[in-house]
Amino acid sequence: MTLDFSVILDNWQLFASGLWMTLVVALLSIAAGFLLAIPVAIMALSHRRWLRTIAGAYVEWFRNIPFIVVLYIFFYGLPFMGLRLPEPVVGGIALAFYASTYFSEVIRGAVLAVPKGQLEAARAVGMSYFMGMREVVAPQTLRLLLPPSTNTAISMIKETSVLSTITVAEITYQGLVVQGATFAPFEVFLTTAALYWLITSAFAHGMHRVERAAGAAQGSQQARHSLADKYLQLGMRRSK
């Protein structure tokens, strides 16, 4: 059989609107998720045990269940609590909560990666714990935060596809609509996938440039896989 991509061109407006919806929902829920993650990370880093336990339970719960289940629980749970909201908003809220658990782990890791002496030096000149975190620790976490945050954000962009199951008219939903009308599933879902590929690649590329500008990519980038490459090279030489 031959592939016929004219069905894509005929329905380009649907894909375009889906792309827009995906971008908006992803951007807003990722931003909200990151903000929500900050208090969770602060709790997880607290020296008070009960705060750590609450944060830990919150993170463990969301990280061990599929996003589609989280989404359905919000979808039925919010009206249950008397909150009737449009589907894209419901989906965005669910994704923000889901993302917050991943971002909180990223933040916690970055804070723990800053040497303990940095905060102690702040305390020694009389800064409180929070002032020391703000003035000394937080600025140093920024470059540590970027690479894992980019990865998490890309995962969340991909998770937006699940919003199609509650009829949010994003890319995957429009793909299902077009495939239902044209019966050209391979072309349609290849196009759908290509659109996500475009978004995630562009995002990764953009963030990589930000990292470069922040000076985080210096040196370590090359060093990281050199040994792996060495192994791979070894295998290659021998197999010739």
């Binding site: 991909k158 596809s161 995957t172 879902f189 996938a193 996500y196 590929w197 995630t200 990764a204």
Partner: peptide
Amino acid sequence: GTPILVQIFLFYYGLPA
């Protein structure tokens, strides 16, 4: 770079085609 849900659709709807 692409969602697993779309990959599942590619296999489920796309391969039979």
